[in-house]
Design a protein around this nucleic acid. Sequence first.
DNA 1: TAAAAGAACGTTAGCGTTAACGTAAATTAC
DNA 2: GTAATTTACGTTAACGCTAACGTTCTTTTA
Lengths: 336, 336
Amino acid sequence: MRRKKSAKIEDVAEKASVSIMTVSRALRGVEGVSEKKRTEILKIARQLKYVPNSNARSLAVANSNLIGISLPTFSGEVFAEILDSMRQTFSNAGYSTVIDTTEYSRDAELKWVQRLLSWQPAAIILTGIDHLPETRALLKASPIPVLEIWDYTREPIDICVGIDHFEAGRVIGCHALEMGYERPAFVSTPRGHDIRADARLEGIRAAYRGRPGADVPAARPSVQNAFTTGFDGTVELLRARAPDMIGYLNDHMAFGGMMACRQHGLSIPNDIGIVGFNALNLVSVLPTKLTTVATPRRVMGLMAARNLLARINGARVKSSEVLPVELIAGETTRRS
Amino acid sequence: MRRKKSAKIEDVAEKASVSIMTVSRALRGVEGVSEKKRTEILKIARQLKYVPNSNARSLAVANSNLIGISLPTFSGEVFAEILDSMRQTFSNAGYSTVIDTTEYSRDAELKWVQRLLSWQPAAIILTGIDHLPETRALLKASPIPVLEIWDYTREPIDICVGIDHFEAGRVIGCHALEMGYERPAFVSTPRGHDIRADARLEGIRAAYRGRPGADVPAARPSVQNAFTTGFDGTVELLRARAPDMIGYLNDHMAFGGMMACRQHGLSIPNDIGIVGFNALNLVSVLPTKLTTVATPRRVMGLMAARNLLARINGARVKSSEVLPVELIAGETTRRS
DNA sequence: TAAAAGAACGTTAGCGTTAACGTAAATTAC
DNA sequence: GTAATTTACGTTAACGCTAACGTTCTTTTA
């Protein structure tokens, strides 16, 4: 494929009557060029609209300033926020981010990791800790820093920053227990879709262990969008199980659930308690304050970016960081 | 920076007792290799965990399979959906996407374009048509295909796919007029932040031209999140202007506005009409159906990706495509 | 003032891949 | 059966950049 020839480093060198190497040094800001020449070279480069060739550079130094990030999905505020806070830090440090979504498929994740490795990236970020064994092996064997974010494990591929989803579930369960709810239920995603959902459900069950309601039934409607998923899952639970409290995977689902309860003539929080997750933006304008669990997404992103940059620069960093979550008691679980 | 040496094409060649070139051909699936050798080479490559070096490849062929995408922000469903639908098409076609967000800053956009060009990308996608003159010039001068998405203009940098935001505003205005509202208002973003917001406002004004209410006041609260922005903007308008209809930049803002109206004891749609934008997921679970404007985001993404791929492959494609929007009349503007 | 040290450059040799061209063997044509 | 094709490879020369080492000239040291 023919392309218009753009200015190369050689053209700049010729015009400035210096060697290629001097231009390279001047442009990168490394030592060994007099101030006079440097400013002149920069001027000429600008005149010629010189754009460095990252491919050549990366080939020469055997590593690029790309950071690969893999997310399950773009939908929802959660990953968008985590991503945002990370990206800005990287961008400021001169790294570009290559992003892909896996739609919760571990096979898709593996394929992406393979493709990404061909770019000799500076680092790779994966969401969660649930990967194919092959993916783990591939990354373990590579010298590239790997960060797992959002989940927590004591045995990360390389380093990780996240929250403990089981613990988060337990916090929800304890709160429900305290408020006197006896038949908790949970609206989740299809089985095997998202291990975090299962971890939280287990957390709730752990809180109720040995008491009535400890089985904590779960609805697993097919995923469309969070609002209707929450709505449908609630309808399903109300019909079959008559729960007096429902936990949700996130606040959007919880809102859908509130609408469903309302339509069924149930009063919140007396007939039924509602607990969301993540403390999303939506809750700030709701007339009834939603009980939810605040997750430190922006802090997590910043810490992840900071740790990873340190790791890239060869510093030793703590391999696993757990961040605390906080239950925010609202009006959807306060029994009068 | 030292890195563990990974298998190169040479290692594969040696082990297979063929030349480097034969391996290259076998791996890329081009002609000139016997079936027997090809399968053997592929097997050996897998054994050796060979990962091709994209930097070297891109340098040799003077172009990469990266596609750069610039978005204003990740927050909100809108760009996430457009992005998602494009990305999948590209991914299937073997392209990786490098993504950056500009936070509505044209300077940030320019910097990103400059950085991106150093990767010799296969194409560049920008959101909207509002760029610095320098950005336009840079891209116009480059041989790289450029796609502008979400807005529509008859004079794109290269090609564009979008909706006509002025027309969308006009549609909203006409509907409000038809429903008998006489003092329309609009909740927007800070001035100069997003030209699409202004285009829609002008559209509403055009619909009311020559009638009472044609000035259409706008609130421009500082941006935090869509829900509270809608809430705050509404409070501001209600206090100062006593409008009988409010249009919003999107459904999330409209929802915030509905909450504010409710708190002010106003009844929707009789005291005040509410019109959102984009037909976001939220509206499907609301007990009161929101009047909104459906935008074809997924179709737009698919069409954009398809057109751009065709353009990359040298085909001639229509330079500008406008997609239709549709007003969905709900219960928030139906006067009884 | 001569020798040593440092600053400011230039030269050489890759980085891992592919395009373009060369060459030998296998196939076809007549 | 020989010439003309075609197939299946191998060789050579980039692609644009940088690390490592050389060279020249200037500055410092004793």
